[in-house]
């Protein structure tokens, strides 16, 4: 009996070793490019460090500076508003389009390809294209508005319009990410369920509420977590479109971080911003993951 236990333990140990061996390349990459820079950034957030100068220990001063800086607080609030708007609209649009695509209609594959195109374009290229399209002086959108007798709009230079524009472009570019996850998930739902519901007298909305939504819920929650995390650290698109302007109206936390680090060269406080962003993202993600576990496996 003991012999069997020893053999089983040895096999288990071997499996664990093999597991670690297979994981080691990924772990090495993660350690090198995520963990070590992360730890260094966390350490740097407790120092005053400017290029060419010796870092000086500052304790929590960088964090105190941040939380006393109204621009930072506003950028965090603005970022939360941005995330709420874009994630909500992406989900609604993504879900609607996925359900629509699941129906049978002509040129279905063509429309799927068209709808996924924005995701295939590099974010930098997409931003430059949109910056041109939305240009006040020479942009085609303003030109078209002029043709129908409407005044030109300051898409990227009016505080409210600029914020709306970055939300719009971001939603345009990232909604396909939702579609790509929800569309196949919707196709996996057996049609028999809908047929049974139809026979029982359920209407379309009831079918959606009691069949589609519960079965898509795990995917929706995962996509929500992904989109929150990705949207929260969105930088390139906003930087290319507005650089955080006009008058900081589109300055998200990532833009604030960039300015601290690479325009004002205060690496200590930039690292502190990064740490705050990580904490916020982790906090939101944990909440969502817990709710996903509860909904999938029960309390």
């Amino acid at each position: 009996m003991n012999q069997y236990v020893v053999v089983a333990n040895n096999k288990q140990k071997k499996d664990i070793r093999l597991g670690f061996l297979l994981l080691s390349p990924a772990l090495a990459v993660l350690t090198l490019f995520i963990c070590i820079p992360g730890i260094m950034a966390a350490g740097l957030s407790f120092f005053n460090y400017r290029l060419g100068q010796t870092p000086q220990f500052a304790g929590f001063m960088n964090y105190v500076y941040l939380f006393q800086n109204p621009d930072f607080i506003i950028s965090i609030i603005r970022n939360l508003i941005f995330v709420c708007i874009v994630v909500l609209l992406q989900l609604i649009l993504g879900l609607a389009v996925s359900l629509l695509l699941a129906k049978n209609f002509k040129f279905q594959k063509f429309w799927v390809a068209c709808l996924l195109t924005p995701m295939a374009i590099s974010p930098a290229v997409a931003s430059v294209i949109w910056r041109y399209l939305l240009n006040y002086n020479i942009g085609p959108i303003n030109y078209l508005l002029g043709l129908i007798g409407l005044p030109r709009a300051q898409w990227l230079s009016h505080p409210i319009l600029a914020f709306a524009s970055i939300c719009f472009v971001y939603i345009w570019q990232s909604t396909p990410h939702i579609i790509i996850a929800l569309y196949p998930a919707r196709l996996t739902i057996p049609e028999t369920l809908y047929e049974a519901a139809y026979i029982d007298g359920a209407n379309s909305f009831q079918s959606f509420r009691h069949i589609t939504l519960p079965l898509l819920k795990p995917v929706i929650i995962i996509m929500t977590i992904f989109r929150i995390m990705i949207s929260f650290r969105n930088f390139g698109l906003v930087w290319t479109l507005t650089r955080g302007g006009p008058n900081n109206a589109t300055e998200l936390a990532s833009i604030f971080l960039y300015n601290e680090g690479f325009r004002y060269w205060r690496f200590g406080s930039a690292s502190a911003v990064a740490m705050v962003l990580v904490l916020i993202t982790v906090f939101i993600s944990i909440k969502y993951i817990k709710s996903m576990q509860q909904s999938t496996f029960g309390a």
């Binding site: 006040y136 002086n137 300051q154 990227l156 230079s157 507005t242 302007g245 008058n247």
Partner: peptide, 11 residues
């Protein structure tokens, strides 16, 4: 130009 805040030298 009313959009002067976002106007660059190249623009």
């Amino acid at each position: 130009p009313p959009n002067f805040e976002s106007l660059t030298s190249a623009n």
